[in-house]
Design a protein around this nucleic acid. Structure first.
Lengths: 338, 338
DNA sequence: ATCAGCACTCGGTAGGCTTCAGTGCTCGCC
DNA sequence: GGCGAGCACTGAAGCCTACCGAGTGCTGAT
C-alpha cells in the first residue's frame, strides 16, 4: 500500500502518460494540483516507486512511464469511478432506443458503439448456446441428398448443420425427414443444445430407416464440432495507430481474428474475477502491450456474455470501465426485453 | 499499345518494384534478362513511359515507380497467366477436401486460406439471398410476447427476424402463431425472399387475429431492413505492414468493417467486367493505394458470390489472380456438392 | 537507333555540435 | 527528519554540414 503522496504521484504519472504518451517528468507531476511538494521531492518518491516496480524509465534522463504493476495499482486504488460523460451517455441511450434487427447485427453494431465511445477496439461475445434451451428442431430438405438441420434456441439464436444424406446412401424421403425431425425434436426440445450429443439412436434398425440414422449421426458430429460462441469485433481500425511497432499491430489484429481464442480470453478474465487485465495478465503474448476491460451482461438475471474493450495499456481505464459497464447493462436490459 | 521493348521495361519495373518496394533504376532494368539494351536506352524509354503516364518518379534522381495506369497495363497485357505453385495448390486442395461445418464458418475459413495464399487481406461475399428460394418458413414462440421468424433458403442459408407480438397487444396464442406461420409459408415457399415485402395482408380483419397481422407487418419491415449479403474478411493483420502511412492502414481497416460497402464494391467491380481494380478504379478514396482482385464463384452454374483479395497496389497480381481463380472455382464446386 | 561518357541532382547517412528535459545527489533549512 | 533549492551529470533529439551514391538527362560518337 502506498502512502498518500506516492499514490498521488503515481496517479499523476499514469494520467499524464495516458494523455500524452510521453514519459512524465518530475516537473509535470509537481505542477499537478493534487501534488503540493517540489519536484525534488517528487523525484525522490518516483525513484522509490520505480524500485517498487510501479514505474519505469525508458532511459536515464527521461521521465517515468507506468509499468503494468503501476497500471494495476492505478485501476485498483486510484481510478475514480468515472461516469460516462453526457454526450456518450446520450449516444448509448440513443443507440439502444433505436437499434433493431436481428441479434447478430445488433451485437456487431454494439461493438462499434463501444469502440466509438472508447476509441479502441471493442469485442462482444454473443449469448452462448449452452445456457439456452432448444425451442424447435426442424429438418428441411435442400436437395435430394442434402438436408439442413435448423435448431432454434430460447435466446433467439439459431444453429444449423448440413446433413449429407447421400453419404449414407439414403434418399431424402419426405416421410423419413419428417420422422427424423420428429425424433430429434422429441429428444431435444426443452433441453440444452449440448445434449444433442447424446440423442439416442433411433429405435428402428438403421437399415430400415437409413436417413434417420444419418441425421442422428450428423447431428451428433455437429454437436462437438460446434464453433462455440460467436465473437463480434468492432473498431479494429483504431488499433492501427495504437502501437508504434507495426509488428504489434499485426499480432493483435491476428489475434482478434481467432474468435475462439478471444472468447476464451474474455471468459477467463471474468472467471478470475477481474474487470481489467493488463499486459501479461491476459496470458497472451501478443497482448503484452494491451489491456482488456471487460464486463459481463445478463439476460433476465443470468450472465450470458461479455462486452470488452481492447486497447494499449495506456488507455483511459476510468472511461473504459464506465463505458463497458453501461453498455453491458443496457445491452442486457435490451436483450431481456427482446 | 507499347512496343515490345517498352513493354519489357514496364514489366521489369513493375515486377522489380513489387518485389523490393524500392524505386527501380535504369541499371536494374537493363540487367534484367528480358532487356538487352543499355541502361542509357532504358533511361530514354523510361522517360517516354513516364510522359505517357505509366511510370512516375518520386523525385529527380530516383528510380521509377509504376503508376496505377502502369499497373493496369501490366495486368492487362504483361502479367502472364500464372499458375498456382505446387505447395499452394496442394494447400487449396487439402483445405477443400477437409473443410466441413456450416456455411458461415467455411466461408470465414476460406477467406483466411486466401489471405494465406496471397499474403494480403481477403474478402468473400456469401451467397446472396436474392438468388435463393425459400424452402421453409417457421414461426417459433420464444416468450409470450416474442416470436422468431426463421426462413430457410435453398442455398442452405437461414434468415431470421424477431417479431414483437407484445407491441401489437397480441398474445402469442399457439394457434395464431401456427396460422401466421402457415400464412407466410403459403405465400413464400418457392419464391424469392425479396417477395417477403409483398406478402398480402391476412384475409381476416386485423382485430380478430392481431398476432397474424403483427407477424406480417414485422416480416415486411425486416425484408427491407435486411442487412443484405454477408461479408467474410480474413487476414486483416496483413494490412498492418502494407502501407507506410498508418493513416492509410486505419482507413482501409475501417472500410473493411463496413460490410455493405465492401459487398457493393465487389459487385460493382464484377459488374464492370473487371477482375482487377487498381487504386482510383475502385471508386473508394481510402483505397487509393490499394488494388482489388476478384473472381466470382458459381453454385450449379449460377454465379452467386465472389472471392477477392485486397492489398496494396504493389501486389503480386499474377499470383493473386491465380489464387482467386482457383479458390473461387473450388469453393463453387464445394458448395455445389453441398 | 544505340550506347558510352559525363555533369548534375538530390535523398540518405554519418559525424559533430548544441540544446534541453530530466535525473540523482548534496546540503542547508525549518 | 522531511523537504526543497541548487548543481553536476546524462543521454536523446534536433540541427548543421559534408559526403556519398544511385540515378538521371544530355551529348556526341558509332
Amino acid at each position: 500500500m502506498l502512502d498518500d503522496r506516492k499514490a498521488s504521484i503515481l496517479r499523476a504519472v499514469v494520467e499524464e502518460y495516458i494523455h500524452t504518451a510521453q514519459p512524465v517528468g518530475s516537473g509535470h507531476v509537481a505542477s499537478a494540483p493534487a501534488v503540493s511538494v517540489s519536484s525534488a521531492t517528487v523525484r525522490n518518491d518516483m525513484a522509490t516507486l520505480e524500485s517498487e516496480g510501479f514505474l519505469a524509465q525508458p532511459h536515464t534522463s527521461a521521465g517515468r512511464i507506468p509499468t503494468d504493476a503501476g497500471y494495476r495499482y492505478y485501476v485498483d486504488h486510484l481510478a475514480g469511478r468515472a461516469i460516462l460523460d453526457r454526450s456518450s451517455a446520450q449516444q448509448v441511450r440513443f443507440f439502444f432506443d433505436h437499434t433493431h434487427g436481428e441479434l447478430e447485427r445488433m451485437l456487431a453494431d454494439t461493438s462499434r458503439l463501444l469502440s466509438g465511445l472508447t476509441g479502441t477496439a471493442a469485442v462482444i461475445t454473443g449469448p452462448p448456446q449452452e445456457t439456452a434451451v432448444v425451442r424447435s428442431v426442424q429438418l428441411v430438405g435442400l436437395t435430394p441428398t442434402l438436408a439442413l438441420l435448423v435448431v432454434v434456441l430460447s435466446n433467439g439464436g439459431v444453429e444449423k448443420a448440413t446433413v449429407d444424406l447421400g453419404a449414407a446412401g439414403a434418399d431424402a424421403d419426405e416421410d423419413e425427414l419428417a420422422a427424423a425431425g420428429a425424433h430429434l425434436s422429441r429428444h431435444l426440445v426443452g433441453h440444452h443444445l449440448s445434449e444433442l450429443a447424446v440423442v439416442p439412436a433411433p429405435p428402428e434398425p438403421a437399415h430400415e430407416r437409413p436417413a434417420l440414422a444419418a441425421v442422428v449421426a450428423a447431428a451428433r458430429a455437429t454437436a462437438d464440432g460446434s464453433d462455440g460462441d460467436h465473437l463480434y469485433v468492432g473498431g479494429t481500425d483504431r488499433m492501427a495507430g495504437a502501437f508504434d511497432a507495426v509488428e504489434t499491430v499485426r499480432e493483435v489484429l491476428g489475434l482478434l481474428e481467432q474468435q475462439l481464442v478471444v472468447v476464451t480470453l474474455l471468459r477467463d478474465v471474468l472467471d478470475r474475477g477481474l474487470q481489467v487485465a493488463i499486459g501479461a495478465e491476459t496470458g497472451m503474448a501478443p497482448l503484452a502491450e494491451c489491456a482488456l476491460v471487460v464486463a459481463p451482461y445478463e439476460i433476465e438475471g443470468e450472465p450470458v456474455g461479455s462486452v470488452g474493450v481492447l486497447g494499449p495499456t495506456r488507455m483511459d481505464y476510468a472511461q473504459a470501465l464506465a463505458a463497458v459497464a453501461v453498455v453491458g447493462q443496457r445491452l442486457g436490459r435490451r436483450l431481456s426485453e427482446g
